[in-house]
Design a protein around this nucleic acid. Structure first.
Lengths: 257, 257
DNA sequence: TACCAAATTTGATCTGGGTCAATCGGCTTT
DNA sequence: AAAGCCGATTGACCCAGATCAAATTTGGTA
């Protein structure tokens, strides 16, 4: 049925999203330990730092690699580190005692993780494909931030942005029908990828159907059926590793917002 | 059917929650313009300020009163002020173009509103019952905060706390059944009221059934039926203006968390 | 090239919660 | 105290999406 194969996206987005296709490239660049040429330098927390500070900052973090499916941290774990996502995608989720899962977000390069009040993570994070993070021990990072209000301000900005996303997500979960959920997810995901890679009608979906279902508050079957429905109506085309937007206006109309 | 009338809660919680019962007390205390004896002094943003700073801070804000149902600000309005809720309850919500509503939260005394990146509010807020806020013009407040990292830190704390609440809310909306939604809402609401007033099995619900429905992603009918079901099973008792927890263990079990 | 395991799609059926439609009950007004 | 109004409750019915059960496709591996 699905005729078109995924056309290789630019090396940039491919590298940044990590191994969402099965290309096995080395994830840690040989020169990867200098903040100054870090891939996410422009938009991560560290965007707020001066070159001089950056050199000091460099010693606080260390790059850590996670293979596909590995867990970066778990809900209820005591927070010992903060994380700055460099490459790849994380699924952030909460589990109910009986195993039901709600994905509360996907983290992309530049996202900062680990802030909480309780001293414990309040969700779990694991790698979708290969992932590289910049890990900071909590105490030294805290001390560094203590004397650098602009870093705190940057972190606050990221938190405020996340809050806004969270509220949009609540509307989606509480008040949208399956088709609207999927359509708005595709558009929002595409939007989020724009600053990371070239804007394109090819939308890579590194996460599984189950992940999408758990993000949208649906079952995997409903997600699958809804994808098929959108494809049959000519709104999208399902391709290997993602979808291709065929009729953006129509998808926007279906998203009802 | 409902035999027990609401027993008057302590004056403290009654005053703080605002006019959730029809008692009409004067909302603005005569001495209300001194931060030092403000009701929310202990846990609002201003908790981070020194007595000396507080006196300067005092001149930045002004108390504003809103009657039941009045709108404090609307989604998409350009943000010109920040708000510190002093008394009463606000419903915070987003609307879809066709009128569907999702309540993304209820604000209680001590909550700080108005932070955003876009320069526009990303949700609407209106009063449930009589409400008093402390309103700050954006620019002066920003300037004041600029030189006071501890205030920024406090605001960041509040944002992080809200994010955690938002994630819990997502799990509720996406993965819980109606009965679980209502049970966990009642417990979480009770929990939130604890620091404001005496902990009690009497849980005031100042918001309407429609509000509860829009908060939980249900219809008003389902909320009503589910309340009745919980009451018939002896878990709660529906009283005027709220509910009374009869069997907390059972409600906790129903909340499935 | 064949085989196995996992992910996805498709089909058939069921059901929780939505929709539509009366009441009901408590306030307010007259 | 009667009338009117509005929020809440209750009942009857329906449907979007869940559940259960196969296929089918994909990816990895021998």
């Amino acid at each position: 049925m699905q005729s078109a194969r995924w056309t290789l996206p630019g090396p940039e987005i491919c590298r940044r999203l990590g191994r969402w296709m099965k290309a096995s490239v080395t994830m840690i660049e040989p020169n990867g330990h200098f903040c100054s040429d870090c891939a996410v330098r422009g938009f991560a927390v560290c965007a707020s730092l001066e070159p001089a500070e950056l050199r000091e900052f460099e010693h606080l973090g260390r790059r850590v690699h996670f293979g596909s499916g590995e867990t970066v941290f778990s809900e209820e774990d005591i927070t010992t580190s903060f994380y700055n996502l460099l490459e790849g995608v994380l699924r952030l989720y909460k589990l109910l005692p009986d195993g039901r899962r709600q994905i509360v977000g996907f983290a992309l390069p530049g996202d900062f993780l680990g802030m909480n009040l309780s001293g414990r993570h309040n969700f779990s994070a694991d790698a979708i494909g290969e992932v590289t993070v910049c890990q900071f021990a909590k105490a030294p990072f805290g001390r560094f931030m203590e004397e650098r209000p602009h870093l705190l301000r940057r972190i606050n900005e990221l938190a405020v942005r996340e809050l806004s996303q969270a509220r949009d997500h609540m509307v989606l979960l509480g008040r949208r029908a399956a088709e609207e959920k999927l359509a708005s997810f595709l558009l929002a995901w595409r939007q989020r990828l724009q600053p990371l890679g070239g804007a394109s009608d090819m939308v890579p979906l590194p996460m599984s159907r189950q992940d999408i279902a758990d993000y949208l508050g649906l079952t995997i079957e409903t997600v699958s059926r809804t994808f098929t429905k959108l494809e049959r109506r000519g709104a999208i085309q399902i391709v290997h590793g993602g979808i291709c937007l065929r009729d953006r206006a129509r998808v926007e109309a279906l998203a009802a917002a």
